[in-house]
Amino acid sequence: MGKRYDQLQPDQIAFIGEQHLFFTATAAPGARVNLSPKGMDSLRILSPNRILWLNLTGSGNETAAHLQLDPRMTLMWCSFTTRPLILRTYGTARAVHHGDPDWATLASELPDQPGARQIVDMTIDLVQSSCGFAVPFMDFRDERPVLKTWAEGKGPDGLRAYWDEKNRQTIDGLPTGIEANL
């Protein structure tokens, strides 16, 4: 049976720190639900009720647009190793863009990753744990270098051009707010 908490517990914070992968979920009114895997050392826990993660450049930019219209977000981690556990955090979040006044302060909490597009700042109002008994065992081999290499090859101007071409709108045509970065 799952358990609920109003904030992350110390053992849950340690569990998150051990994971190489997490999932994000958002939805805007009338739009498709977005569910995305994330990795690459892009997440930091600032307090038991606050998480930051670096939204790196990708083919879509659904999260930023969804959060403008409906700030609800869920993050999920699941153990693929010995301890069976699924952990979810529920709350509200906002996408912080390069041009926003608090970008530099928040970015200083995160690793410097090429292709950093937004910072997602989440306030947690519910934490839920569940058993994870059906999650398969899987071994972590390594981070993929492809996104980092690709972003470094594009350079700042190439990334801005990519954002302009691919990241201004969601698959449902919603604006993502990335225009401030161009």
Rank of each mutant, 00 (worst) to 15 (best):
76 M>H: 13
86 I>N: 04
87 L>G: 01
94 R>K: 12
66 H>K: 10
68 Q>I: 05
58 G>I: 05
78 C>G: 08
63 T>A: 14
54 L>T: 13
79 S>K: 02
55 N>P: 04
55 N>Y: 10
81 T>P: 00
62 E>N: 13
98 H>L: 10
91 G>K: 00
82 T>A: 15
91 G>A: 01
58 G>R: 01
85 L>K: 11
106 L>V: 02
107 A>Q: 07
83 R>A: 14
60 G>T: 15
87 L>P: 01
70 D>L: 00
99 G>V: 11
100 D>E: 08
80 F>E: 09
103 W>T: 06
65 A>F: 10
62 E>D: 15
86 I>R: 09
91 G>C: 01
60 G>A: 14
55 N>S: 11
74 T>C: 12
107 A>L: 06
66 H>A: 08
55 N>Q: 06
84 P>K: 09
104 A>N: 10
96 V>N: 00
61 N>K: 08
94 R>C: 03
87 L>E: 04
92 T>Q: 13
91 G>H: 01
95 A>C: 03
78 C>R: 10
58 G>V: 04
83 R>P: 10
54 L>Y: 03
87 L>V: 07
70 D>T: 05
90 Y>K: 02
104 A>F: 11
60 G>F: 11
75 L>F: 10
81 T>R: 15
73 M>K: 05
58 G>E: 00
61 N>S: 06
88 R>H: 01
67 L>V: 14
103 W>A: 02
95 A>E: 05
78 C>K: 06
105 T>M: 12
107 A>S: 03
85 L>T: 12
105 T>V: 14
94 R>P: 12
81 T>K: 13
70 D>M: 04
105 T>S: 14
95 A>Q: 02
83 R>S: 13
99 G>L: 13
78 C>M: 14
97 H>C: 03
65 A>C: 06
107 A>E: 08
101 P>C: 13
96 V>M: 07
54 L>A: 09
107 A>N: 07
54 L>Q: 11
81 T>N: 14
104 A>W: 13
88 R>A: 00
93 A>G: 05
62 E>M: 00
73 M>L: 12
94 R>T: 08
77 W>Q: 07
103 W>M: 10
58 G>F: 07
72 R>P: 08
56 L>T: 11
80 F>I: 06
54 L>S: 08
69 L>H: 11
79 S>P: 01
87 L>Q: 07
82 T>L: 15
100 D>I: 08
89 T>R: 04
107 A>F: 02
97 H>R: 14
57 T>I: 09
77 W>M: 05
88 R>P: 06
85 L>P: 07
106 L>K: 12
82 T>P: 02
97 H>E: 07
65 A>Y: 06
57 T>Q: 05
107 A>I: 00
